[in-house]
Amino acid sequence: MANEEKTKVEFTEEDIQEEYNTTYIKKVHRIGRVTLVIALFLSFLPVAFMYFVLGYRVPVSVYLNVTFALTALCVGMWITEPMTWYPILGAAPTYIAYLAGNVKNIRVPVARSVIKKYGENPSSPRGQVLSTFSVAISVFVNMFILAVIVFTGSYFVPLLPDIVLTAFSYVIPSLIGALIWFRVEESGWKKTLTWSIPPVCIYILVHTLNIEALSDIGEAVSIAITILIGYITFKRKKEA
């Protein structure tokens, strides 16, 4: 207890921010970058093993075709997507989310729900400790549940009543409802509805004009344009 009091007296907000901006964040990027490089290597390892050691081969030209086909389909998402989650999650949770996956259906909701509960600013040191801790916990829990589903799902899922299986397909809509409420609580109905106008307009545009090239990256375009409008509005207010 005495120690706790001493700590509270010893460190100011500036001290915390200073160490966060130097030592802490440096380590975050070091861990993030090193683990991503190793993960990249480990991801391709089984393919390399089967291709070179076991001889499970199709011609290299097929691999090139696949590479071109996927690049054409995914390049928009590859470039835009990771940057869109950073403002919501912060650095460390973004690194975790892009290795463990399920970014918008697990990592974002979990981080948002704890940030909401503690009323923290996600980009502050407290907010970052909170979301890093909670997203890491979500990885452990999700991995455990995934293991249970993979190892036993084929046996128990067919035993479940149809209505339960039907309900599973509505997890995402329900999740969206909760995330909307988290935002309303933080920003209020007026701001939430006002800033929902850009994504609604972009969705309608993409779907009425039926722009094939945009349909895969519609969400990323929506995020980018909403941020841009936010930035222009912010600058104008600042100048005024």
């Binding site: 869109t84 996600p122 995402i172 969206i176 994504p199």
Partner: peptide, 30 residues
């Protein structure tokens, strides 16, 4: 703070609409 809010609503608004367009039960779910 504006960046966080606009990024979230940009994705949430679009995601909500594209999910809701999947039918009445999904809209009810939201």
């Amino acid at each position: 703070p504006v960046l966080g809010m606009t990024a979230e609503l940009g994705f949430l608004g679009y995601w909500a609409l594209s999910t809701a367009s999947g039918g009445i039960p999904k809209t009810v779910g939201i």
